Each structure stands twice: as structure tokens, then as C-alpha cells.
Lab assay of single mutants.
Amino acid sequence: NNDALSPAIRRLLAEHNLDASAIKGTGVGGRLTREDVEKWLAKA
């Protein structure tokens, strides 16, 4: 759900042209964290 994304995470996803639904969030309530996105980028 994009409503649950912080502005910083939205920007990070946009910079790398990523789809938030492709990344499993580990934050509160399954929210994406910066670490989630960075780990996903490291694997890609």
C-alpha cells in the first residue's frame, strides 16, 4: 500500500524505478524501511 510509504522511501523507490509491491517490508505492520530497499537493491 503506497499510503504507508514514507516520503524518503517513495523517493528511494522512484530513484531506482522500483515497485514497492516487489519488496517485502519488515517494518511495523509490514512497512518498507530503507534497509529493506537497500537489501533488495544489493540482491538485484
Rank of each mutant, 00 (worst) to 15 (best):
N1R: 08
N1S: 14
N1K: 12
N1E: 14
N2P: 12
N2V: 13
N2C: 06
D3H: 11
A4N: 12
A4L: 14
A4E: 14
L5V: 10
S6K: 05
S6G: 08
S6Q: 06
S6E: 12
P7E: 15
P7A: 13
P7R: 11
A8E: 15
I9L: 14
I9R: 02
R10T: 06
R10M: 08
R11P: 00
R11S: 06
R11G: 05
R11T: 07
R11D: 09
R11W: 13
R11N: 08
L13Q: 00
L13C: 03
L13M: 06
A14H: 08
A14E: 11
A14M: 10
H16M: 06
H16N: 05
N17L: 07
N17H: 11
N17Q: 08
L18F: 09
L18M: 09
D19E: 10
D19N: 09
D19M: 08
A20P: 14
A20E: 08
S21R: 11
S21P: 04
S21M: 10
S21A: 12
A22P: 04
A22S: 12
I23V: 06
I23H: 02
I23Y: 02
K24V: 14
K24I: 14
K24A: 11
K24E: 11
G25A: 07
G25T: 03
T26D: 02
T26L: 05
T26F: 04
T26Y: 02
T26M: 05
T26H: 04
T26E: 03
G27W: 04
G27T: 02
V28P: 15
V28W: 09
V28L: 12
G29Y: 05
G30P: 01
G30E: 03
G30N: 06
G30L: 01
R31K: 13
R31L: 11
R31P: 02
R31I: 12
R31D: 04
L32R: 02
L32W: 09
L32E: 00
L32A: 03
L32K: 01
T33G: 01
T33L: 06
R34S: 07
R34M: 15
E35H: 08
E35L: 10
E35I: 07
E35P: 05
E35W: 13
D36E: 03
D36G: 00
D36Y: 01
V37P: 00
V37R: 00
V37L: 07
E38V: 13
E38R: 11
E38S: 06
E38W: 15
E38N: 07
E38A: 09
K39T: 10
K39I: 08
K39H: 10
W40L: 11
W40M: 10
W40D: 02
L41N: 01
L41R: 01
L41A: 04
L41M: 07
L41V: 07
L41T: 02
A42L: 13
A42R: 12
A42H: 09
A42S: 11
A42K: 12
A42P: 04
K43M: 14
K43F: 15
A44T: 11
